[in-house]
Amino acid sequence: MNEIRIIEVKQSVFASNDKRANELRDLLKEKKTFLLNVMSSPGSGKTTTLSLIINRLKEKYRIGVMEADIDSDVDARTISKNTGVDAIQLHTGGMCHLDADMTRQGIESFENWADYDLIILENVGNLVCPAEFDTGAVRNMCILSVPEGDDKPLKYPLMFEVSNFVLINKIDVLDYFDFDIEKCRENIRYRNPMADIFEICAKDGRGIDDVCEYLIKQIEEWRN
């Protein structure tokens, strides 16, 4: 007869991920590599925006890009074609987000990842799950586009709470949507008073210089 016993665990499920995320951040700090985690809905313009940012920063920094999707390598190829920097595609195998271990595996699949000054992780397009798992990134960036609506920070609170800065994209089509940009800023600040907010248009490049200037400041602070 097997004796049945109870083991009390009392352990947070997210605790082990948080621990691994902090370990990864420590390693990145040591190697002076800045990891940027980019999150948004599908179709908000992540890949286009990143192409513009990378093209402005690639002279200054050595950059590697990790594209996370459930399937396909469309984004990695687009980034590689648009910018010429190293881009790899990560497949999540049906999962809706990346956790710290998957991020680390992705980073380690670059040939010499520590040579990069900046690694950009384009997370799975989704405003819910990616926010719940700390990837180990130094900063979280969220892109919200005008057609999605100014109420998204109210509907997806955690995403805006964990984002250090938010880009409001597609401001060229503001006239065609009931999108109140002041209301949107207010909604973001309601969730996260510390969030920095930028208005951009990835199609014509408006606002991108400001984002780059901001990013450079963040990267330099991290590396020094």
Binding site: E3, R5, I7, E8, S12, V13
Partner: peptide, 11 residues
């Protein structure tokens, strides 16, 4: 917002 493993029954 807790997500805890409380206990497990084993033999």
């Amino acid at each position: 917002n807790e997500f805890m493993i409380k206990e497990m029954e084993v033999y």
